[in-house]
Design a protein around this nucleic acid. Structure first.
Lengths: 225, 225
DNA sequence: GTTAGCGAAATTGTTGACAATCGGCTCCCG
DNA sequence: CGGGAGCCGATTGTCAACAATTTCGCTAAC
């Protein structure tokens, strides 16, 4: 939804949007750690914009759940506990389940082919041990399913939930043995959508994300949380 | 989550919070109709606060999905189409399903009794034809289930979805024959949670809200959308 | 040595003024 | 008579200064 207006507008029109995007990217990149205070004046200097712009950016990111603002106390990067990460993923589980079911009901022949292609690339990436590539394909697959479903409300929420967990999710994809577990799950989801079996698609997606929740717990035990 | 800080603080500290609440109440009451423009200057006068306060209130309500703001074009009350209302309710369906399952897994004996009490009151309200009362109990039941589940993430989202549809939801409860349909559904949900049957609780909740979606379509055909 | 109280620095909240933008209107030209 | 260029009022976006609040170090008393 945040369209990429670049053009050559008198720059004042862009700043608030880009400041938000730059700050979001910085947080997701780990330039600001969870719990770290976000002092407005510092951000002004860092981003080269006025305090007003910084404030609106912070409010926007607060709405996305990336930062938390306390009255008269300022903003800080939201720190997400394991319990919260699990809750967020549970929500994502049922939402993506809904979306998978919708996708199965609406998928076209072209889209089915596209799904298959991603599935094939995934399998290749796993056998080749290209985990980074597999992670990208994973994201592409989920995005495609959401596009097929055409469910704006669920799509927006899923994207918000995902944003809150990108750091963790990344660590997750590096867990050894994880691709071997998730690849057949992904293939099952693709198969169900191609067969236009909504119930099976939802079930497959939910079991897939349920196993992600399991992996989250494991990640915590190892101490990489 | 929006705690009720009243105290006797020098009022400036409260205004932004209450302005938001007043404006939200006004929108939900229908004082501002869907699609109606919300001109900042007018709201300043109407609410007796500065433009800065009005702006933050508008941004907050935009995050809740009650108003929409377009750059340089101002804010207006969000107009929710039937299709969007269905999407929102579908999301609510899977989220409340999740919450019902969690509630079934965590319910205590005292809470089970409380559920039963509400169920009894509901049945009485329906037989007595007290629809307004039944509507209140309906809300109380769903709130209690969410409280039992203790799932903050889902709870917040459900509340947001509900806020976007209160107007419609109200019209829905006045549909003749609607209580007769939903009462047994509610009783089935209560029964499942009391039996600590998570799968059945989720299924019952989903079928209940699925029938709400059906009713939404009927409402549209009648023209009360 | 510890803690309560005080005060200054740091930080956020708010205001009013100014700049940029939008929407509609008129008026001119074809 | 139709259409578009340009102007004007209305409205929103932004800024820099000011007010309120919090935080933290310091002092002093116990």
């Amino acid at each position: 939804m945040p369209a990429e207006k670049q053009e050559m507008s008198p720059q004042s029109a862009r700043e608030s949007a880009t400041a938000r995007d730059v700050l979001r990217a910085a947080i997701l990149d780990g330039a600001y750690l969870p719990g770290e205070r976000l002092v407005e004046a510092s951000l002004c200097e860092r981003l080269g914009v006025s305090r007003f712009i910084v404030r609106t950016a912070l409010q926007d990111l607060a709405a996305e759940g990336l930062v938390e603002v306390q009255r008269n106390k300022g903003a800080h990067v939201r720190k997400i506990s394991l319990a919260e990460a699990v809750e967020i993923t549970e929500v994502r589980m049922v939402l993506e389940g809904l979306v998978a079911a919708k996708a199965a009901a609406r998928v076209t022949e072209d889209q089915a082919i596209e799904l298959d292609e991603i599935g094939l690339l995934m399998r290749r990436a796993v056998t080749a041990g290209e985990f980074r590539r597999y992670s990208d394909l994973n994201q592409r697959l989920h995005a495609l399913i959401r596009a097929i479903a055409g469910h704006r409300t669920a799509d927006t929420l899923i994207e918000t939930m995902r944003g809150q967990l990108v750091r963790r999710q990344f660590a997750l994809s590096l867990l050894p043995g994880r691709p071997a577990i998730s690849l057949p799950q992904h293939e099952r989801i693709i198969e169900a959508i191609r067969a236009r079996d909504a119930a099976e698609a939802e079930l497959a997606m939910r079991e897939h994300i349920a196993s992600v929740i399991e992996a989250l717990h494991n990640l915590d035990e190892i101490g990489l949380a």
